[in-house]
Design a protein around this nucleic acid. Sequence first.
DNA 1: ACCTTATATCGTAATTATACGATATAAGGT
DNA 2: ACCTTATATCGTATAATTACGATATAAGGT
Lengths: 117, 117
Amino acid sequence: MNTKKQLQSADLRLAKMLKALGNPVRFQIMQFLAERQTCITNEIVQNTLLAQSTVSQHLKVLREAGLIHGEIEGPATCYCINAEGVQWLKEQIARWLPECCSNSQPLDFYLERYAKK
Amino acid sequence: MNTKKQLQSADLRLAKMLKALGNPVRFQIMQFLAERQTCITNEIVQNTLLAQSTVSQHLKVLREAGLIHGEIEGPATCYCINAEGVQWLKEQIARWLPECCSNSQPLDFYLERYAKK
DNA sequence: ACCTTATATCGTAATTATACGATATAAGGT
DNA sequence: ACCTTATATCGTATAATTACGATATAAGGT
């Protein structure tokens, strides 16, 4: 991060999310969580060939990036997609680099018109 | 990548792009390139505090992820955003995890209606 | 031919990420 | 109290990333 122009805090949040999603295991955990809507750590572990501790570490990264939400429920932890975070990410990407893509005007138009907030 | 269900090739392409963008230096290079439309390596180097070789390495990652496009022009290399690649990424993200986000239906609707291809 | 400018690549050091097993914690059942 | 189940965290090994300087390549000007 030795850059001349510093990234804005929104860009930092975005960079953190992108970095979290850049790992195929974490990307797949997101897909799995989206399918199941909600599930406990152990179900996620069983969907992979990785050790429980490894998956727990990946879940921490996703949590800290604001992409998932976990709450302790009895002896287990129940995870689900952080819809607000994912929505924010999707809007940021949709708005991103509008000047380089042919159909970015209508996308921006859509966002101003229909996106909440 | 020890996952039970393997990622599809589109997902792999997406994961590669997200990983490339997950680095703040590379993210910023994309922003810079989008502003300038087109520029040579040295202009990008001068926008950072990094060594020329380091920037060249980052450009290689972005190139291999299909996010930028570089062509040799005399003694220099002229870089620009790979509009097709960025557009593809934006569409993938817009379509991603539709079941978890409230306003994903209108976004998908937009994409089917206006997005080329 | 030689020098300058612009890049890419190589070798390498330092840092960060990824993975595992072992251990700690916490809740629920016997 | 004890055992099981479910997780998180710690310690640590290995692999990947990031960074630099040095070197190679290639084009253009003198």
